[in-house]
Design a protein around this nucleic acid. Structure first.
Length: 579
DNA sequence: GCCGTTTTCGGCCCGACTGTTTTCAGTCG
């Protein structure tokens, strides 16, 4: 059973509840939505949790109490939920699909069903063509038009886009807004600031005393396809890139609280606000207020958290995963920063499937002020990537030696490490002979074939490689590609355990569609005494810049630089690899 | 529906924007 299926049912129940509001349904709706989110973002099948720990296990999940645990149990046992089926019988419509349309919520969807029998988007499109929506009470020509546009956008939208796409896009928009000279302060907020792996929309926050002009400037940018809403403090546009972008303008004195508010996430903010209330304060996007509604000036976010009795919290941690308690007891770790990273241990060249030569990658690394990079080309069985055999590796290592010598004469010191991204074959053995592996400074092991193995088989396969004492780093441990394919079936905690025992380092692959390990797996792995390596998996010189995405992911996993091997000097690193 | 360092009842975040109203409901984040 997929968690998403159950999560969607909970979301839909929440929508159904919204149709006939009662005094308490507002909160029941919130409960279903919160539980839906919990289930959707769970890292293991909810069925497994139920099998292992029963109803109690379900109830230990945030937002799931006795009532909803019963519903989950019912679903696992019978494949359905009575309450949901009753709603479905009364309103046989595709509510999830319809409410996906911007501007249509549950109540409008039901209204459309009752008046026009609309059950899904296809029905809705037909009614728009026949000009029926605009004649409905409470709707008008503008509503019909906006629904029509929303459907078009939905059909074009690719859903959440990669952080690696959204961040550069947001930076480029911010640059243009800065150049307008209409803003005094401007920051990217929202999920980009939290460095989430995928982004649903771009949020930008600005201070301006020419708000109207700024909004005009923003909505007329070249990147904009059309305007969704436009006001003096909030404007939303649809970008040609296929994502929406919000610009919000606040007064200077509200900037800190607005930045806190719009960075989120929502659950984190709700908790923070509740803490404010418990201290007889009120926090909203305009500021912090005392019980007489008197404004309390905060010059930055640090000020706000401090006045609430907490330690400052890096944006990447604000996901309501226990960070608030940590901040209250002043135990927020000092997270790794991009500038802490001294090297990159996963870099390809055109010897296998990279696009740049050894020399070009070395030059790029020097430009990026890296002290060392490991040249990790693919091995022979990965034919599609032009993997190297023992003989070609031997030749490559001679070239690396020569280039290292040459570089030592230049100003920007850099050491190239002899390495490989060795294939972990189907039976768990490595794709190179021991003699060749022994010549390397370090070895990365990775799975690139037979993804569809059974869970136990795949777990043993990888553990065999970890125990071989021939690899130092396990690359992209789960093999997932964001928005493309899930990871292979794996008992991930057994992998972490094996890494701890055998001193094998876990990679945090920074490639934007990998980010593997991801934040939740890093948090899980942190229960074990393991180290991590933030690597780019560069296949081109520009890819070396991806370190920032891996760093963001590590920060989302609460990692301090002490846990990151490539924050260490080369000498320290070699000590670690010797083990 | 959930939840608890004011615990088993009584709270539960809150403001912006829009369209169609003529004072507000619905939607969104």
């Amino acid at each position: 059973m997929e968690n998403k299926v159950l999560a969607d049912i909970f979301y839909e129940i929440a929508d159904f509840l919204d149709i006939e509001p009662t005094k308490s349904s507002k909160f029941e709706i919130m409960a279903y939505k919160k539980a839906g989110l919990t289930i959707e973002t769970l890292q293991e099948p909810i069925e497994d949790i139920y099998k292992k720990y029963g109803k109690k296990g379900l109830m230990s999940l945030p937002g799931i109490g006795s009532g909803l645990a019963d519903k989950i149990e019912e679903f696992i046992k019978t494949g359905k939920i009575k309450k949901y089926n009753e709603f479905k019988k009364k309103y046989p419509i595709d509510l999830r699909q319809l409410t996906n349309i911007e501007g249509i919520g549950a109540r409008k969807a039901i209204l459309l069903y009752k008046k026009l029998g609309i059950r899904n988007i296809a029905d809705l499109k037909r009614s728009i063509e026949q000009n029926k929506i605009s004649k409905l009470q409470n709707f008008g020509p503008k509503s019909q038009d906006s629904i029509k546009r929303s459907i078009e956008l939905l059909e074009k939208s690719k859903g959440r886009i990669l952080l690696g796409v959204a961040l550069p896009l947001a930076e480029q928009i911010v640059e243009q807004l800065k150049k307008s000279n209409l803003t005094d302060k401007i920051e990217i907020s929202g999920s980009i600031r939290r460095m989430r792996e995928t982004i649903g929309d771009i949020d930008i926050l600005a201070v301006s005393n020419q708000s109207k002009k700024l909004m005009d400037f923003f909505s007329e940018l070249n990147d904009v396809e059309n305007i969704i809403v436009k006001g003096e403090t909030k404007t939303t546009v649809w970008l040609k890139a296929g994502i929406s972008c919000d610009l919000r303008v606040v007064k200077n004195k509200s900037f800190a609280s607005a930045l806190q508010y719009f960075t989120g996430n929502k659950e984190h903010n709700i908790n923070i606000r509740e803490i404010a209330i418990s201290k007889n304060l009120k926090l909203n996007e305009y500021g912090l207020f005392d019980n007489k509604n008197k404004f309390i000036y905060c010059s930055n976010e640090n000020d706000i958290y401090e006045k609430l009795g907490m330690q400052y919290m890096p944006p990447e941690m604000r996901e309501d995963r226990g960070e608030i308690k940590l901040a209250q007891s002043h135990k927020i770790p000092k997270l790794v920063e991009l500038k802490d990273l001294k090297g990159d241990l996963h870099v390809h060249t055109d010897d296998s499937d990279g696009e740049n030569s050894l020399e070009e990658m070395a030059a790029a690394a020097q430009n990026n002020k890296l002290e060392y990079i490991a040249i990790t080309n693919h091995t022979k069985s990965l034919k599609i990537a032009n993997g190297l055999d023992e003989k070609r590796f031997s030749n490559l290592f001679e070239r690396i030696d020569k280039l290292n010598q040459k570089i030592q004469e230049s100003a920007n010191k850099l050491i190239l490490l002899k390495s490989a991204e060795v294939d972990i074959l189907k039976n768990g053995t490595l794709d190179l002979d021991k003699k060749t592996l022994d010549q390397m400074d370090c070895v990365i092991g990775a799975v690139h074939s037979y993804f569809k193995m059974e869970k136990n088989e795949m777990t043993s396969r990888i553990i065999k490689a970890i125990e071989s004492s021939n690899i130092n780093i396990l690359a992209h441990p789960t093999g997932r590609l964001i928005n493309e394919r899930p990871g292979y079936l794996l008992d991930i905690e057994k992998i972490f355990e094996a890494c701890e025992k055998n001193n094998v380092i876990l990679e945090i692959n920074s490639f934007p569609n990998r980010l593997d390990l991801n934040d939740t797996n890093i948090l899980l792995a942190s229960k074990y005494n393991v180290m991590f390596s933030i690597d780019t998996d560069s296949h081109r010189a520009e890819h070396l810049k991806f370190l920032k995405y891996g760093t963001g992911t590590a920060r989302r996993g609460w990692l301090a630089k002490e846990k990151i091997i490539n924050s260490k000097s080369l000498d320290q690193l070699k000590q670690i690899f010797k083990k």
